[in-house]
């Protein structure tokens, strides 16, 4: 911030720590389009065969990448949509509406927000089996959406809290019902929040690994994370070129979203978990 000239030692230390990550990023990109040459750091010649998973099955018995991509997209977008929808209403109720038991709901929300949901996965596994939703996309969508919900409600409540009360009071005085006030006057003020929540829960769904691994292990419900994991696990030859190409393909939406919304994302991740 101020102009002291001795920043070079600092940059040097940072650079040293960052080197492993930068090397990983770099070779992640290089190896995905270079012919594999393990044991050497000089990339082989340009080779697109790493991307063969796009036009052929890597091995029989695996679903096509398009099926898997579709599953992933369906999973991530439906989850994001559900989380946003439920958070939008529940967040408003908790932020603005009078109701009996409100302190308990709020306390419960905070507890759930912090509660490590992954510990419940065994019970959820069994519940899904009992409901007949095991190994279905619907099942993991519902679970993922439910587990993301406390975070979503918390974020949305935060956004609603910043809308001036006077706007709602004015709306009520103008004769509008609370529902109409919410829909026509308050919602437009929290659009940025909606967008942020949609993006974050989409990203979270897109990256999710453990839930599909445990709750939807079948090949017809595979998503990109479990697909990629399965390819890695089953391949005895350590074909990192292929893995990295799949990884590149898998992370494209994440990178794109990251590049567009970098600032907002950092803000939300910085503030979202804060009280």
């Amino acid at each position: 911030m101020t102009g002291t000239p001795r920043i070079w030692p600092l940059v040097l230390i940072l650079a040293i720590f960052s080197t492993p990550l930068v090397i990983m990023y770099l070779y992640q990109i290089i190896d995905s389009v270079a012919s594999p040459d393990p044991g050497s750091l000089i990339p082989g010649e340009l080779d697109l065969s790493n991307w063969r998973f796009l036009w052929e099955r890597i091995d029989s018995g695996r679903p096509t990448i398009w099926q898997v991509t579709f599953n992933t997209f369906l999973f991530a977008s439906t989850t994001a949509f559900l989380v946003t929808l439920l958070s939008t209403t529940a967040g408003y109720a908790l932020s603005r509406l009078n109701m009996p038991g409100r302190p308990y709901f709020l306390g419960g929300l905070i507890i759930l927000h912090a509660f490590p949901t992954i510990t419940l996965i065994i019970a959820i596994f069994i519940i899904l089996q009992a409901l007949g939703l095991f190994d279905t996309l619907l099942g993991i969508i519902l679970v993922k959406a439910a587990l993301e919900l406390p975070f979503g409600v918390w974020i949305m409540k935060g956004f609603y809290d910043t809308v001036p009360w006077e706007i709602e009071m004015a709306g009520v005085q103008d004769g509008a019902s609370r529902f109409r006030v919410w829909w026509e006057l308050v919602m437009p003020q929290v659009k940025p929040g909606l967008a942020a929540l949609l993006i974050i829960s989409f990203l979270s769904g897109w990256s999710e690994f453990v839930l599909p691994l445990v709750l939807a292990p079948g090949s017809s419900t595979q998503v990109l994370s479990t697909f990629m994991n399965a390819v890695i696990q089953d391949d005895a030859t350590a074909d990192f070129g292929l893995f990295k190409a799949i990884g590149m393909y898998y992370s494209i939406p994440v990178i794109v979203i990251y590049l567009i919304f970098q600032k907002q994302l950092m803000n939300i991740y910085g503030g979202g978990t804060k009280g």
Binding site: P164, E166, I167, M169, Q173, G175, A176, Q189
Partner: peptide, 19 residues
């Protein structure tokens, strides 16, 4: 209820609908 009272209010910060 407030909606049916026929009262007009001007708030300190005007509370205009920004959108």
């Amino acid at each position: 209820p407030a909606q049916q009272r026929s009262v007009g209010v001007v708030f300190q910060n005007y509370a205009l609908y920004p959108h």
